[in-house]
Design a protein around this nucleic acid. Structure first.
Length: 224
DNA sequence: GCAAAGATTTGCT
DNA sequence: GCAAATCTTTGCC
């Protein structure tokens, strides 16, 4: 499938968010390519949005968010998990769409391997038994739960700060967005964003989270 | 310079 | 259901 049209992300981030649900997140090419359908996202819109990383202006971390749309903004949260965003709106405006959940479509083995590697690495401090338990836990997961959370998407696709600034609308990028033939089959619903209790109203409750109604691959807490 | 908190996930009580 | 893990960025002295 062709890469997503950058122009679809250039206007406002909430519209961009609605267009991203149903689109495909792809890493690599050929038989080992990882492909998944995006089923849950959140829009973060500019300096005025007091839940957005841009609320303190441009910094070293969020720099790409101020640049051209269609570029990846990847940051580390809680010291351990990466989160992938798609930059939206035009140059100079700081907006992005957080990819919260993906339904794996192809490359499931690669995703599970990546999840297993990272889970084993994290459990290493707690001893060999913990590593075995962590590996077994990932092995028991159904494919549709392999990327059902913002940190898990990055784990499954091995996305890290190294991917910050990658152009997701370039067909030559290893990590990119592609269109989907039947995206319109999803029933879109919106709700308040998750994990932003630090933000004051109205930002805390504004329904800028967009997701596929009733989808089994939604993030934890993402069903409502 | 230092203290605090975070767009999360996991494991244990 | 709650707290730990873990480290970068931000905010204040």
């Amino acid at each position: 499938m062709p890469v997503l049209d950058r122009g679809l992300l250039a206007d406002d981030a909430v519209s961009g968010a609605r267009l991203l649900v149903g689109a495909m997140l792809v890493r690599g090419t050929g038989p080992n390519a990882r492909v998944g359908r995006i089923v849950e996202v959140e829009a973060y819109v500019g300096r005025e949005d007091l839940a957005c990383h841009a609320r303190f202006g441009q910094t070293k971390r969020n720099g790409v968010m101020f640049g051209r749309p269609g570029v990846a903004y990847v940051y580390l949260v809680y010291g351990m998990h990466n989160c992938l965003n798609v930059v939206a709106e035009t140059d100079g405006k700081a907006a992005a769409v957080l990819i919260r959940a993906v339904e794996p479509v192809a490359g499931v083995g690669e995703m599970r391997r990546a999840r297993t590697d990272l889970a084993a690495q994290r459990a290493r401090n707690r001893g060999p038994a913990a590593v075995v338990a962590a590996v077994a836990r990932i092995a028991a997961l159904p494919a549709w739960r392999l990327a059902s959370g913002p940190g898990l998407v990055c784990d499954a696709y091995k996305i890290s700060r190294d991917d910050d600034g990658v152009d997701l609308c370039d067909s030559s990028s290893q990590l990119r967005l592609e269109t989907s033939a039947n995206a319109e089959q999803l029933e879109l619903v919106s709700g308040a964003r998750i994990g932003i209790d630090y933000a004051p109203e109205p930002w805390r409750s504004i329904p800028w989270r967009v997701f596929a109604a009733g989808h089994r691959s939604l993030s934890r807490g993402g069903a409502a």
